[in-house]
Design a protein around this nucleic acid. Structure first.
Lengths: 173, 173
DNA sequence: TAGTCCTGGATATAGTATAACACAGCGCCC
DNA sequence: GGGCGCTGTGTTATACTATATCCAGGACTA
């Protein structure tokens, strides 16, 4: 029923995640006739690598420092645009950041649980949520283009760590 | 059941909306002991006036040109922060913009239908949506702090205008 | 009257995103 | 093989969004 694994499990071989994401992306782009160039592939890898939302300028820094590439903002944004078009990554509006898509093969709406402590993003794809939204939209004659559901709060891990688990306060540091 | 009027009805006396919003805000701040200063009140009015999402720098321009006020970004952002805290306005993350809250008295989650043509924002407060989200969060031990549901698409009006009503295309101009 | 808090002015800077032009590589077609 | 268009990336400049920091003045309180 729940078909949405957490984007980040506490302990797992993350290198495997990245490799898998890259392999799926390669296969997918091939099928679609989309060109996953070296740069685009590298940006996808960087988005996945951190296992959390990543900013465009963070990626830019990595490209410059690790790859020795002369890169400017447009370089990164163009690659990100391509990856979003291909649904290989998602943009988190409330963070101005990007995360890898956990299931690029099956198109789905963007629904995220975002932990304000560890910044982990858990992607959902819940029919209940999207149905409820579609119902409201229909009632108003609204034609849905793109859903964005971003829920901020504390993930299970971080909530457990906090005595009392208060919501609405910033972490002590 | 549906307790959420559209933020913008095609034909209505909008001056009345603004006045009403200001009256409610005044009353509410008084009760809460919050200081709705001249500046804050004016910013609230400007947010309401346009009847659509308004950018911070747009407000800044109006303060300078219409009020002759010497204002800088912090002036505006501070006022906006206050209004958000008091739940008198909402921030639309995907637009970096602000809209007036249609029901500041009853706390509610932020759910919006945003027309990409006329930019009208319709605020929802649908239990079905928030229930579905809460259910998913609970299943994952996630403690919800703030929900953000922003649905982009075409409102009834604009969809009707478009032959075929295609989703996914920009309007001709 | 002094101390304190709140509000907003002023300056500077950080962070995010795009416009516009240049150029190289590639496939295509004659 | 040369011209052509297309795509992807480099490059420069700039626009847009947001915050840090310091300070002045008024309101409230003791």
């Amino acid at each position: 029923m729940a078909k949405s694994p957490a984007l980040l499990e506490a302990d797992h071989d993350h290198r495997h995640c990245v490799d898998n994401a890259l392999a799926v992306a390669t296969e997918l782009c091939q099928r679609r006739g989309a060109r996953l160039t070296v740069l685009r592939r590298r940006v996808l890898e960087l988005v996945w690598r951190s296992h959390g939302p990543v900013g465009a300028y963070e990626i830019l820094d990595w490209l410059r420092s690790e790859d020795g590439r002369t890169a400017a903002p447009p370089t990164v944004y163009r690659a990100l645009d391509f990856l979003i078009e291909q649904r290989l990554i998602h943009r988190i509006e409330s963070l101005n950041a990007f995360v890898g898509c956990i299931d690029p093969i099956n198109p789905h709406t963007g629904q995220y649980l975002i932990c304000r402590d560890c910044r982990t993003v858990t992607e959902l794809d819940d029919d209940g949520i999207s149905h409820a939204i579609r119902r409201q939209a229909q009632q108003r004659g609204f034609q849905i283009g793109q859903q964005t559901v971003e829920v901020h709060g504390l993930c299970e891990n971080c909530a457990g760590k906090k005595p009392g688990s208060e919501i609405g306060r910033q972490s002590a540091s």
